[in-house]
Design a protein around this nucleic acid. Structure first.
Lengths: 362, 362
DNA sequence: CTGTTAGCGCGTTCAT
DNA sequence: ATGAACGCGCTAACAG
């Protein structure tokens, strides 16, 4: 069948150990011997058996990357940046590893299943991306899985979700988290400063850290402007929150629902840019102009956001940089940040989709 | 360190062979024994060692997916659909495999490197997605690598590129290819029927099958309308072809170049939707309206294309379906198409970005 | 510098 | 139905 180390050794007239040494270049080997071995390797088209090597050396060439869905640009960009770091130097010996991308679809069960599969493979590292599901049970389950992985030497990095709770902080888990709360707050402040008071909010799925943090930022901004939950205007704002998925359809449906709840609203903040596009489509279908009648804002600043028209006001997350950083961390190519947690700043991007409300202008 | 089969065996008071049989469920085992073993497995939190299993059983849980870049929605959607099939049933024993996504960045060397890495891992299957680089040397190199992989039992699927040349057709390689030529032809016919005659073409990178096929379709449509390369109008069209990357910047730059070459052009066809957005941006920056002054068309029908404004006329490729099909093929869950080649039809999507040229209307 | 030996953890014969 | 023994292909001690 396949040619093995022994075949190469026989061909080169040396022991298999010597061949191994030449291949890994960790031990001194005489130049002439090395050359003979390399010739034999080339002649036989020998390719090492990764699993045998992994078994013997107790190492792995695999790094798991858990994402909700690579088809979603948010995760696609993260995955791409991660893969870039993980696979970097794949040509050199020991240079790069293989990124195993796992689509969880946002399902907690799938997340656990994949963690088990990666544990099976004795993955060298695991990166969990995107918001985490907030449930006692699931958090505990993930934590214990991660603890076992970490105990067996697997490097763990969280990217785009908050660090694990303090009690579990003993885990050697590194985190690259996004300032979702701050970004959301600045975004809503922007709308408030434009004069908007009836602001709809299309939130993401419930029980997700990302959803909660963005919503908290939004409400914090409202409260700071005297629109706390205990005021009349605040009560309206509370009523103007609709939860949905992180997809375009959800945005479309949510926008219609918001208009039903308050035909007078002047602005809509969406959970992310994709949802915002759905919101825009719904508003247009209702004959409303953006931002003339209603301002719309998104989150993430995905590539298409600048090309939408009007261009979307949104909050930029440097996804590629964050992913690359997480990649370096999981590869051990960069020292962990102090406390194990790095917070990536977010930036308000004001574009054409937001403007003062019509009433305030006339 | 990690708990092994032997540990479980000891705990259950049976031999390791019995534990193995319980785990794989391929052999008859007494109910009571089975139960004791399963209890021991649960109590010890045992997780099989994938590499050891792979080594012993000569099987692999890995399937490689080569893409140019997962951050590109075209590949992101393909990868997502592929992963969905590959990982399907990951919970059941033998149910799913792990998709190893490899970003080649369109580099032939990276492609070969990853194929070697996947061969190392004795991957159960490999899917090559997207257009192939057209070069004698590279094609030969890839073919021989694929031949070796196939010989060692790895299932090979091509998705989004043409089948390998007839001489290599003996390889058990399955192909899911896109009708790029037909789609491009219908797209240009659409523009011609609107009355356009000076049509710029922003082609993809040279020496790529996708680039060539789309360009051929474009030229075929022109020729069919009497605008062959030997006519005056045809000569103009030839001059109005610019090559660039598959990214937005390339589209932007190419559009400016096209306007320089012919300020009178009335339509621009782009290599894909992303490029088309760049073209649109450049035209707008030049003060030209779409489609009033210049019509623009793309290719692929990525999700954002319908939300651009004007919405992009483009050619739809059912990427998710194609990816899922390729995934089933590589998993051996679907019978290979006759001749090993399935051609996926493309569909012209006429939207707002194309209209009759201004001159013909007045 | 190189060969010999002993596992890595599991699947799988062959016995029983 | 179960156990003992061997080997998958390679790396890592240990000699020499």
């Amino acid at each position: 069948m396949a040619v093995t180390l022994a075949d190469v050794a026989a061909r080169a007239g040396v022991s298999s150990a010597t061949v191994s040494r030449v291949l890994n270049g960790n031990y001194p080997v005489a130049g002439s011997t090395r050359e003979r071995v390399q010739r034999a390797v080339a002649e036989l088209d020998y390719v090492v058996n990764g699993q045998a090597r992994a078994l013997a050396a107790a190492t792995s060439d695999l790094v798991g990357v858990l994402v909700n869905d690579v088809a979603d640009p948010f995760f696609g960009i993260l995955a791409s940046a991660l893969q870039g770091e993980i696979g970097a130097g794949a040509a050199e010996p020991g240079g790069g590893k293989l990124a195993v991308v796992c689509n969880t679809g946002g399902s907690p069960e799938a997340e656990l299943t994949y963690l088990t599969l990666l544990e099976r493979q004795r993955a060298a590292g695991v990166v969990l991306t995107g918001g985490a599901v907030e449930s006692e049970r699931h958090t505990a389950a993930v934590s214990s899985r991660l603890a076992r992985l970490a105990a067996s030497g697997t490097r763990i990095v969280l990217c785009g979700r908050p660090p694990l709770a303090p009690p579990d902080e003993t885990l050697p888990v590194m985190t690259v988290t996004f300032d979702n709360r701050g970004g959301a707050r600045r975004l809503t402040e922007h709308l408030l400063s434009l004069g908007h008071r009836r602001i709809g909010y299309v939130a993401g799925p419930v029980d997700r850290t990302t959803t909660r943090h963005r919503l908290e930022g939004h409400r914090a901004a409202l409260a700071a402007h005297g629109i706390g939950p205990d005021t009349d205007a605040g009560a309206i704002s509370l009523r103007l929150t609709v939860h949905g998925g992180y997809d375009r359809e959800s945005g479309y449906d949510a926008a219609l629902e918001l208009l039903r709840r308050d035909p007078e609203l002047t602005a809509v903040v969406a959970a992310n840019d994709t949802v915002a596009l759905g919101v825009c489509a719904a508003l247009r279908d209702r004959g409303l102009s953006i931002p003339g009648d209603v301002s719309v804002a998104g989150f993430d600043d995905l590539p298409f956001s600048g090309d939408a028209s009007p261009a979307l006001t949104t909050v930029r997350i440097p996804l590629a940089e964050a992913g690359a950083r997480a990649g370096r961390l999981v590869m051990g190519r960069q020292a962990p940040p102090p406390g194990g947690v790095a917070t990536v700043a977010t930036e308000l991007m004001v574009r054409g989709s937001t403007a003062p409300p019509a009433s305030s202008g006339s």
